[in-house]
């Protein structure tokens, strides 16, 4: 009971500190908000870029088109042979009939294409082996191996769309975001700590009489320190709420569009509420840590207990 009465009084006193210095409170909240926005934007950029890299990686494969006179049995032998290769994750056989069916399905709304396909007497689609590698780096070697294989004559075309350049670019963008983001974060965290440190130091100065009397009449250490910590933590809570409200539309509206732009046609990133909540929790934790550090430093320096 006593504990809760004291806790309530500490929180009340902390909020009162904040209201007495409303402009300083505003400055502290602002700098904390900016820090959190930078953190959130960097995190979201990181998420969307790594998501793009992943979805591009999933799309990379080597399509081996066989000449129309090669029998299915021969192709399946080659498939089994390829599956024995440790670099290869999977080999998918698509027969010419299946290929035609897939094509018709994908274009069923386009009557012109279907009509012109029906004009043909032969099936124009070759039988295909779609090869996926375990590692991105292995694709050129696998493509090379196919080129030099004994059954090269049976193959009409080896189609290997080299997406590695795009992936490399995205990866270097990812590295840039991490490096630049970390530097920016460190700088703003330091600024936030300094600003909140000064705000709390000033509050301590303004309340020095009260603190002295508190000590005199037997206030415990945490009863004296509590309000200053509450004040600093309040800045982080307000900043986290503002930041969340600002990144909410970015996350659910803009990110899917950016995702579509980066990797058109791929699995489009559609805002996952779990990731969003995760971002909010992380920023709240970081804000709490920053507030706690700066207020504890200020108390250590200026508050005589």
């Amino acid at each position: 009971m006593k504990f809760f009465i004291s806790l309530l009084r500490i929180i009340k006193s902390g909020v009162m500190n904040l209201r007495r210095n409303i402009w300083l409170a505003a400055a502290s909240t602002l700098i904390m908000t900016i820090t959190l926005i930078i953190l959130s934007v960097m995190t979201l950029l990181f998420i969307i870029t790594s998501y793009s890299v992943q979805s591009i990686q999933e799309r990379v494969d080597i399509s081996t088109y066989f000449k129309s006179d090669v029998s299915e049995a021969r192709i399946l032998v080659i498939r089994d042979e390829l599956q024995g290769d440790s670099r290869i994750a999977s080999v998918n056989y698509v027969s010419s009939a299946e290929a035609r069916q897939n094509f018709e399905e994908n274009n069923r709304d386009d009557q012109l294409i279907i009509d012109s396909l029906n004009e043909l007497t032969d099936n124009p689609f070759p039988s295909t082996l779609q090869i996926k590698a375990n590692n991105l780096e292995d694709y050129p070697a696998i493509a090379n191996m196919l080129e030099e294989s004994s059954y090269r004559d049976l193959i009409q075309e080896i189609n290997f769309e080299d997406n590695r350049i795009i992936i490399e670019r995205l990866n270097s963008l990812l590295t840039f975001i991490i490096t630049f983001g970390l530097i920016l974060m460190v700088v703003f965290c330091l600024i936030a700590i300094l600003v909140i440190f000064n705000t709390i130091a000033l509050t301590i100065y303004n309340r020095r009489e009260e603190v002295e009397i508190m000590r005199l009449v037997g206030a415990t250490n945490w009863y004296i320190r509590g309000p200053f910590l509450v004040e600093a933590l309040t800045y982080s809570v307000i900043a986290a709420i503002i930041t969340s409200a600002l990144i909410l539309p970015i996350y659910f509206q803009m990110l899917p569009k950016i995702s579509n732009y980066l990797t058109p046609g791929a699995n489009i990133f559609s805002g996952d509420i779990k990731i969003f909540l995760g971002v909010i929790v992380v920023q709240l934790i970081i804000a709490f840590i920053l507030s706690a550090i700066s207020s504890l430093l200020a108390m250590r320096k200026y508050l005589r207990i």
Binding site: E209, E210, E212, I213, R215, L216, V217, G218, A219, T220, N221
Partner: peptide, 17 residues
Amino acid sequence: PYLRRKIGVVFQDIKLL
């Protein structure tokens, strides 16, 4: 703090809020 609650203190400069 608990000891100070058993001892009242009064000063020349009064120290009221």
